[in-house]
Structure formats: structure tokens, C-alpha cells
Nucleic acid binder design. Sequence first.
RNA 1: GCUACAAGCCUGGCUAUCGAUUCUUCGCUUCCAGGAGAAUAGGAAAGUCCGGACAGCACAGAGCAAUGCACCCUGUCAGAAGCGGGGGUUCUGAUUUUUCAGAAACAGAAAGUGCCACAGAAAAUAACUAUCUCGCCGCAAGGCGGGACAAAGGUGAAAACGUAGGGUAAGAGCCUACGGCUUUUGAUGGUAACAUCAUCGGCGGGUAAACCUUGCAUGCUGAAAUGCCACAUAAACCAUCGUUUGAGAACGGCUCGUUCGAGAUGGAGGGUAGGCAGCUCGAUAUACACCAUUGGUGUGUCAGAUAAAUGAUAGCCCACGACAGAAUCCGGCUUAUGGCUUGUAGCUUUU
RNA 2: GGCCCCGUAGUUCAAUGGAUAGAAUAGAAGUUUCCUAAACUUUAGAUGCAGGUUCGAUUCCUGCCGGGGCUA
Length: 159
Amino acid sequence: MSIRCKTGQQLNFLSLRRVVCETEFFICISLPKQFTFRKSERLKSRKALDALFQSGRRFTQQPFRVFYAIKNTPGLQFGVSVSNKNFKKAVDRNKIKRLVREAYRLQKNELQEVLEQQKKGMHLFLVYIQQDIADYPVFYKSVKKILITLIKNLREDHS
RNA sequence: GCUACAAGCCUGGCUAUCGAUUCUUCGCUUCCAGGAGAAUAGGAAAGUCCGGACAGCACAGAGCAAUGCACCCUGUCAGAAGCGGGGGUUCUGAUUUUUCAGAAACAGAAAGUGCCACAGAAAAUAACUAUCUCGCCGCAAGGCGGGACAAAGGUGAAAACGUAGGGUAAGAGCCUACGGCUUUUGAUGGUAACAUCAUCGGCGGGUAAACCUUGCAUGCUGAAAUGCCACAUAAACCAUCGUUUGAGAACGGCUCGUUCGAGAUGGAGGGUAGGCAGCUCGAUAUACACCAUUGGUGUGUCAGAUAAAUGAUAGCCCACGACAGAAUCCGGCUUAUGGCUUGUAGCUUUU
RNA sequence: GGCCCCGUAGUUCAAUGGAUAGAAUAGAAGUUUCCUAAACUUUAGAUGCAGGUUCGAUUCCUGCCGGGGCUA
């Protein structure tokens, strides 16, 4: 009981202080099952990747280059890569990949809903092309923009 | 208190929310999805500089070649060349009859070959200048020819054992004494490297991280190894060689020799590129007593991913966190780097 | 993961262990020209870093740093 009381106090404390946090918490409480990022949601097949790089659509949204392809079978798969040349240390590469994945995990729901409505699937791949490491808010915003443009493209194609 | 060196230790913690991988369990006929619980990156995981474990192939033999190593004893997962301990030799610094500290790829230059710029007579066989002497010519200065070859010749990084005496026409390890270095042999001490002493002979520079010689060691390839399952095709086409007159393979770089015996090599092209095992319990850590050199027993620990998990956000705590991310495993080395403790040395302040 | 190769002026390449590291281009200054180009003259520029062997290292050896290749 005592622990619950403490956590409840902290929650109030946080929500008063931070606004971004508040929104995140609201989503979390309302839809707790939607923020998964499992093995089946990752783009792993080498064959699919080669096909995506050769014949998929692409555009650039700093600091990423976006490759995507719309499939008729349902399911959304996602992948990230960071160049070995730009970042020589494995620690930096891992950090970027983790931050991008986190930003995608928290924002992918809208795209998923649109795909479910249209009964289509998508392969999505991001390549980090900037030379230096950005902070988490930058990743959050740019991933948001990418998802919005993707949804726009989907709706135009459908109509 | 600061700085330097050496040794050892640690590599943030807690709370909340949302996640990831593996395992167990609930539920379900099974899988998937879902709930609960546990575990989840380092001292260097790095560089790949070494050595192994392990796996596949090979395991009649001989010779040559190639590669690596080089004072001795000993320990350890180890034949340790590299790690730990102890010792020897040489060099350097301090100290001064001895001791301390540091360094050393520390076998051989007296088996042979090569090289040693510039300078210098000469860079190793010797020659040249100068010296001494004899003969001839010349008034003389000197010149020419023969003999002595060994000291001097200021250069250079390096110069033909050093000093004293004898000896001689002049000289020279030519001889003697003392000293230094060194080869052979022997004695003593030491497990050995080696040290001391004696003896015979010698003293002819350096370079082996130049070729090389001697001694020792080394089968090759590395988890993208390797084994299995699934899927897919082209057992097709062209060129060369070949089937007992033997292509090719074992055999690893070559030769001899032995064995096997029908395909081999290259070109152009086609297909697949999914999964499982290897994969983490070990050459493990610690404690214990027994037994006597090596094992046994008990307890604890132990990431296992595969486009690749171990994270994100917010707050608090003394420093608001350095270097940095496993990819079969282990031991060593090197490099990067934050903090703490102990010891030694130096400097400053106070007493 | 494993196995190899290479680092020389701004760039492309030379240099038996030997003197002040050479050449072509690019740069700068000058001559020429009304101005530019071309030509000519002059000039500044480098052995990846740290140790060792040697009388003396671009070269030989060791360790770091950087770049590249092969291998399914």
C-alpha cells in the first residue's frame, strides 16, 4: 500500500511539471497494448531488403533517407541502419538505432490503423545519413514527420 | 594538499511508466497472440600481436625448401620465444674497495659471401708517402735503381692489443715483464647459465633487426570451420587435357617414392542464400578435509542475439559520469580511460 | 569472425641503409601583355606516430594510428 501511495504522488508530481510526459502517459493508460515492437514487426529478410533498395520508393527527411514499399499482404515491418563509415564506434551506432526504434515504437499506431483500414502492408526502412549524433527530441520529430508523409501518400494512392 | 611511479579494487544506485531477447510457468488440442516470474553486456567486450581448446581434412617414408625462436633453472591450462618467480653475463647511472636501481631480439663476425657514403695513404689482401740501408750519378741540394714492410702519416662513427725494457742499419708481439681480450683442454664450485684457477695457442675493425651458419620447434585450414534438414535447378552448353601409353588426387611449396583410378581445369550462364545443431556448465570460482600430486566431495555462479536484444523518458542521491558494446570459448600482451585504497619519492603550507 | 596489403609535397609517382629526400602538376611572387591565357624566372612546401638496431634509417625490426582488399 505504501509503495502505491508513493508512486501515485510521483505521478501527480510529474504530470504537473512536464507536458510532453502527460500526453505520453495518457496514451499509455488508454491503449497499453499498442506499443509493442516484436520480432515479427522487424524487417529482417535479406531478400526483402534487396528488393526494397532496388525497386522501393524513397524520399529524404533529414536526418534520414526513407525506403518504403506498399504490399498487398497485411503487416507493417520496420528496420533501421547506421553506416559503418560515418560512425566507427559500435556504441554510437547502437545508441542511434535504439533511439530511432524507440521513437518509431511510440508513434507507429496511426500508420498501422490506416494500413488496417486499407488492408495493405508496408516495408519501411530508415538509413541514418547525418554525420553526428542528434538528441532524442530530434529523432522524435523527424520520425513523426516521416509517418505523416507516409500516411498522406497512402491516402492519395487509395483515393 | 599536489605531482610522479608501483600494486590492488570498483565501473553508479533507487523509484515510476512504456518496451526488447532467452528460459520457466499459467492458459490453449498444438502454434501464434496474452498473463506472471527469473536472468540479461566489459575491464578492457577493442586491437588481432601471440598461444591453446575445439572442428574438418590428412596421418607409409626420405630429402630439400619455407616459417618462427635464441643466457639458465623453475611455475602455470602450456614444450611458454612473449606471462610469474629466482639466478647469470654485459652496459648505463648513483655510490665508492662494495651495494643499489634501470636496461638488454643476450647463439655465432676465428665457416663463407656482401656492405661500410664523405673524409682519409689505407675501411681490411695490400698498395702509397715518408723512414732506414746498399749501389751509381752529382761540388752540393738531390736524382735513379735494388733491399727492409714493421713503427709514423692528425681523417673518420670505426685505424691494425696497451705500457716499460731489450733488440736492430732503422724498426716491429720480433723477444721479455706486467696488464687486457680470446680459442682449446683440464680441475674446483654450481641442477644449469656461469664463476675462479691452471695450461696450450692467438690478438685478424664493425654489421647477422644484410645474406648466412649452428641448435630447437612447426601438418594445413579456421565457427563464414563443420554436421544435418528443407527448398531449388542445368547430370545441360563451349574449349583444352585424359581413361592402363594414366588426366588428376592423397601430398598441403618442390623432388623421389607409395597408393587410388575417370574424370579434371577454364569460360559463359542458371538456381539457392531459409532453419537446426556447433552455442555456452567451462582448461570456471571458492571452501573443506582426506590422500600425498594429482584428483575427489560440497556450495555458489554462469548474456546467448542472428539486419543482431540488454533500452527510452522523468525524478532523487555524493562527483550528474571517462573509455567504450559480446557474436565459439579460454590464457597472455598492447592500446583507450573515470574513481578509490595502500606504499615510495619530491614540492608547498602549518605545527 | 578470419586472412592479407598499403601509408612520401595540396595531388600523382620516384629514391641500393649514405650528404641538402627528386620529378611532374597545383599554389605564391615576378617578367611579358592594354587585360587574360600560354611561355619564362624565382619561391614555399612532405617520409603517419612512438621506440629500437646501426656511425647513419623513407628503407631494417617492434608497438600504436589511419586507409584499402579478400573470404559465405
